[in-house]
């Protein structure tokens, strides 16, 4: 087996693993009970899943131009994802869309001003 073959096989493995992680993320979105837990699924396995898929693409494409683009995708995804998930999570928590019965510890609720529009009293 030449080096190219090894890279091809490794690329294939990376793509399959990345796809599996993304599939698990999709299952999580369907199965988890409230928005905050779903956010974990929607944003997180993506981090590793995306990195692995990009690695697989890099191993297969083997061109500097494509590599630059893949690095950009990784950087921007990793910089923007936390901010997006933070804004959604923050809004949902403040709107009271939390299954409080599933929280074992809640340090935040009592520090927030009471929101009269919240569905919970």
């Amino acid at each position: 087996m030449s080096l190219v073959d090894v890279a091809d096989v490794a690329a294939g493995v990376c793509l399959v693993v990345g796809a599996l992680l993304t599939l698990i993320a999709a299952i999580g979105i369907l199965r988890f009970p409230d928005l905050l837990t779903r956010m974990h699924s929607a944003t997180k396995p993506q981090v590793l899943g995306l990195l692995v898929i990009l690695l697989g693409l890099a191993l297969r494409l083997r061109e500097p131009a494509a590599l630059g683009l893949l690095v950009m995708v990784a950087v921007f995804q990793m910089v923007t994802t936390p901010i997006g998930s933070h804004m959604v999570g923050r809004a949902s928590f403040r709107a009271g869309q939390v299954r409080r019965d599933l929280l074992v510890v809640d340090d935040l609720s009592h520090t927030l001003p009471v929101d009269p529009t919240s569905p919970e009293k």
């Binding site: 905050l36 974990h40 999570g89 928590f93």
Partner: peptide
């Protein structure tokens, strides 16, 4: 935030 399992809500 990027590490799975934890999310910054505030």
């Amino acid at each position: 935030s990027l590490v799975p399992g934890s999310l910054v809500v505030e």
